[in-house]
Write a protein that binds this DNA or RNA. Structure first.
Length: 921
RNA sequence: GCGGGCGUGGCGGAACCGGUAGACGCAACGGACUUAAAAUCCGUCGGCCGAAAGGCUGUGAGGGUUCAAAUCCCUCCGCCCGCACCA
């Protein structure tokens, strides 16, 4: 028997698919469409195993839907702009574009070797001028439509690298690359007004438009948008006081106007105009603001920061309690970016306000009484009460519930003309400016006379200028240093002007790429998308990607789709009808241990005892650890020093060295620094792409993380070999039978195999439809086991099949189904099997097998019999037997009789086809 | 702190709408083949008692609803994820 050799067979089929253009797709309104898309990769250098899992899932869906008769669009491209290319350029002295293009070349070949059924004609990179010019056009359209604004905003500024940093790039207040103290700097930036659509973006999460999305993603988006209803109102300063800037009061936002009677202070954010207006002349205020700005940059340290403030020489009038006034503070816990940047503090019913009141000895007045509390003894002096209850100590609000009091307070403020009920969103507008070279230039021109003007459409594209590679090793944005590119005449007045040197956030690039894929590349229109193509293909029917994009990318794409619709390009508002978020691929880590000669009982001060591998790896960095758990590598009680991470192939060598050992570390996401990366090529080299795909889908549910193990990969390879062994002897088996006319089956063995076949078809189909690839694979194993167990069967004419087993109809039918059921998972193997069996054409074009419902139902069923809830026997009855008959059969069973002996049968529950429970005592 | 999710053999995981818990795979163990090993094939495989038949027990812990609970409800413990001074 010829051993299956993926190294020869896999490339053979890939070139067949290529020469036959098997996966090229055309817009064809006469056929039902299916658009399956995996989030396109960033060309970071090489494909990793996580990509394999992601694209294998999409490919299963694409191949399955194709077999079901859909016109399937399954494209691939590159999210090619971005910071890493510039960093690489800086380090290697190269050019970001060269680095990016080289990576794309490598990664395209790697992806192709996975056997993905992709229409490669549609490939593009977001750094292609042919793509980003249309992004510039969209931006101009959005500008006209009012979705673009320019405004001042704070950024994290690295003064050494002279660049803006994302929050994630600020570590402990310092730039991640330069280590320089990060400054907060106010810059004029471009914004897309995503908040203008906040209401609809939120509404679609719950009104059925996104039913095909996971609940957790919808929830995350809901929280991110963060709608809250409340009151925006003005507190007037008492006695005609005015701030240095002339303000006679301050606007605040609250969701708890019911607690207004509990107010004991007003607080504004350090960035608030009121605070700023005092800062010029008041040293204490200025110092406080400066201090806030230092700590303001980092994120989680805020939580531990003490609530602090500085008093302004102002008093505000209480809106209800005439004559009462409230002190006004600048406080470090108020955010300028939410609401109005100012609040009233109610220490009795808010933790932060409580902390603040305690520190500055402000009154703490309870105004909400919990249901079972007593008004005379209830106290909020120790901690605030935030639950429901009855309003008291509150004038006209007394006796109301919280909800009713909120309504009443809003009504009263509105009547007085001091404010109104409003809705606030947590969502902020999307700042798209990046002070970077390697991105899509923002098509705008700054003119002294005319202000900021759009680049006229006839002048598009604004291409990135060619830049000498050595420019990238100088800090700052190279575009700022290119007068020949930067200096242009103003399109309006013709005078001297300069180009915008900011480029777009790369999230802009990925917010509409899926619409571009839908546009036929052989007839690219003079527009971002082709209307007919978009009409046919959108929305994406199945989108697949990592959960890390649950908020930003998916929200931006939803916004873009709406904006494109308003500009007349699309007729859908939701881009992704169904979303699936897959888990990561993890792998065991290994760590070097260096044993010491220290006595086991040593009590040196710098030795800590650790109780697990995870703890050891986490804590024992640069110190000594006493091992207090069994691990084989070292003795319990041994004191060790932790060395570096180890590649799996180095472990044996280290273990052999005296005084050293290998500690298996925690199972983690693959990363270069932890040396636990497994390259897809290495797997494909050993076992083939099919085995790699199979393994990535087999063990865990797709949404969960999967651990890569050598044994698992080997197991997948074994499956490939087993299938080939089952198919190989049955050469030409399909040609010997007419599958449209199954024989009238006589033998129980044949019928049983046919049942297994049709159950497998039904099961695998359902599991693929529901994204349960691990279960689909389990069913294929079950089916293969049944197929192997099936005895040699009879030929259609009834004579014994003494020759190859596949001569019998049931065998041939089973093998035909098997080849097609595996084809989405292991496409190369499936083609080879199909050819061997004598199937017509390519299996990637063959129709999906249909399950015969008649073969899915059994005439007889085995029913368990319980006595008082405990399983005592089994009986076999006709599937359609009526409950009375089943009950009688159950009661007459010998084992059942034994268990009810001496008891009275009180009740018999018969669940047809399922179970019988006899209640007796 | 707020919001959400999850706890099932040695491991990854099955179990439709409450109806035979542990499908399928991995590991392990026993056997066959082999001079031997690998590969392959056959078999066993939650725990306890038992030669077996069979019995008891068992889905993080405790309680409840039900003829019947991994599944529903309550309390607790543990782990994971998201947001995080959002007024």
């Amino acid at each position: 028997m010829a051993r299956y050799n993926p190294k020869e067979i896999e490339p053979k089929w890939r070139s067949r698919w290529a020469t036959e253009d098997a996966f090229a797709t055309e817009t064809d309104p006469s056929r039902p469409k299916y658009y399956v898309l995996e989030m396109f990769p960033y060309p970071s250098g090489r494909i990793h195993i996580g990509h394999v899992r992601n694209y294998a899932m999409g490919d299963v869906v694409a191949r399955y839907k194709r077999a079901r008769g859909f016109n399937v669009l399954h494209p691939m491209g590159w999210d090619a702009f971005g910071l890493p290319a510039e960093n690489a350029a800086m380090q290697t002295g190269g050019h970001p574009e060269k680095w990016t293009r080289d990576n794309i070349e490598v990664m395209r070949e790697q992806l192709k070797s996975m056997g993905l059924s992709i229409d490669w004609r549609r490939e593009f990179a977001t750094c292609d001028v042919g793509y980003y010019r249309w992004q510039q056009k969209l931006f101009l359209d959005f500008w006209k439509a009012g979705f673009v604004e320019r405004r001042e905003s704070y950024v994290n500024w690295d003064p050494v690298d002279m660049t803006v940093l994302a929050n994630e790039q600020v570590i402990d207040g310092k730039g991640w690359r330069s280590g320089a103290e990060v400054e907060r700097k106010k810059l004029s930036q471009w914004f897309l007004t995503i908040t203008s659509m906040a209401d609809d973006l939120l509404a679609a999460l719950d009104d059925g438009r996104l039913d095909g999305w996971p609940d957790n993603v919808r929830l995350m988006q809901r929280n991110w948008i963060g709608k809250s209803k409340g009151l925006q109102m003005k507190f007037h300063f008492a006695d005609g006081m005015k701030a240095p800037d002339g303000a006679d009061g301050v606007e605040i936002f609250t969701t708890r106007p019911d607690t207004l009677y509990g107010a004991s202070f007003i607080a504004v954010a350090p960035d608030h105009p009121l605070a700023q207006s005092y800062a010029a002349d008041d040293k204490a205020v200025a110092a406080f603001i400066a201090e806030c700005q230092k700590t303001g940059a980092s994120q989680e340290a805020i939580d531990k920061a003490e609530k602090k403030g500085v008093r302004l020489p102002l008093e505000a009038e209480h809106p209800f309690a005439k004559g009462e006034t409230l002190p006004v503070y600048v406080a470090n816990f108020i955010l300028m970016s939410y609401g109005t940047g100012a609040i009233f503090g109610c220490p009795g019913h808010d933790q932060r306000d409580h902390d603040f009141a305690v520190k500055y000895s402000l009154p703490i007045i309870p105004v909400v009484l919990p249901e079972d509390a007593d008004a005379t003894s209830f106290s909020v002096a120790e901690e605030p009460y935030v639950g429901p209850g009855e309003i008291y100590n509150s004038g006209f609000l007394n006796g109301m519930t919280v909800e009713a009091a909120i309504e009443a307070a809003i009504a009263k403020i509105e009547a007085a003309g001091d404010g109104k009920g409003t809705t606030q969103f947590r969502l902020r507008d999307w700042g798209v400016s990046r002070q970077r070279y390697w991105g899509c230039p923002i098509p705008a021109i700054h003119c002294e006379k005319c202000g900021v003007v759009p680049v006229p459409e006839k002048d598009l594209p604004v291409k990135l200028p060619d830049i000498d590679a050595k420019e990238f090793s100088i800090p700052g944005n190279p575009l700022d240093r290119m007068p020949e590119w930067r200096n242009v005449p103003c399109p309006e007045c013709g005078g001297g002007a300069r180009r915008e040197t900011d480029t777009f956030d790369t999230f802009v690039d990925s917010s509409w790429y899926f619409t571009r894929f839908a546009t036929d590349p052989d007839a690219w229109p003079n527009a971002p998308v082709d209307k007919q193509d978009a009409e046919y293909w959108l929305p994406v029917d199945q989108y697949i990607g990592g959960i890390e994009h649950a908020i930003l990318h998916l929200l931006y794409a939803r916004f873009f789709t709406r904006a494109m619709r308003q500009c007349g390009y699309l007729s859908v508002d939701e881009p992704f009808a169904n979303l699936f978020t897959q888990g990561m691929v993890t792998h065991a880590t290994n760590r070097e241990l260096i044993k010491t000669d220290w006595p086991v009982q040593s009590d040196e001060g710098n030795v800590q005892t650790v109780h697990s591998a995870a703890e050891l790896v986490e804590k024992a960095v640069n110190s000594f650890a006493r091992i207090d758990f069994d691990n084989g590598a070292v003795k319990r009680g041994q004191v060790v020093m932790l060395g570096g991470w180890l590649l799996p192939e180095d472990c044996d060598r280290i273990n052999a060295e005296p005084g050293k050992a290998v500690q298996r570390g925690p199972i983690e996401k693959m990363s270069k620094s932890k040396k636990n990366v497994v390259s897809p090529e290495a797997i494909a080299d050993t076992y083939g792409a099919d085995a790699a795909r199979w393994f990535m889908l087999s063990d865990s549910p797709p949404e969960r993380d999967v651990e890569w193990t050598e044994a698992g990969a080997a197991g997948a390879w074994k499956l490939v070999a087993r299938i080939w062994e089952a198919v190989e002897p049955a050469e030409g088996a399909l040609k010997a039978h007419d599958f449209s006319k199954p024989p009238v089956t006589a033998s129980e063995a044949e019928l049983s195999l046919r049942r297994a076949t049709h159950q497998a078809i039904a099961g695998v189909t359902e599991d693929i439809e529901n994204f349960r690839f691990n279960k689909a694979i389990a069913r294929i194993y079950e089916f293969l086991n049944a197929l192997k167990k099936a005895p040699p069967l009879r030929r259609p004419d009834g004579s014994p099949a003494n020759g190859p087993r596949a001569e019998a109809f049931a065998q041939a039918e089973a093998l035909s189904a098997l080849a097609r059921l595996i084809s989405p998972f292991t496409p190369h193997l499936a083609e080879e099997c199909w050819e061997r069996l004598g199937g017509d054409g390519l299996i990637c074009r063959a129709p999906w097998p249909e399950a015969d419902p008649a073969l899915l139902v059994k005439d007889e069923v085995v029913m368990p019999i319980q006595v008082n809830g405990k399983r005592r026997a089994e009986i076999s009855v006709a599937a359609d037997a009526d409950p009375k008959t089943v009950e009688a059969a159950a009661l007459s069973d010998e084992a059942v009789k034994r268990h009810i002996d001496g008891l009275t049968v009180r009740k018999v529950v018969v669940v047809p086809g399922r179970i019988v429970n006899i209640v007796a005592n």
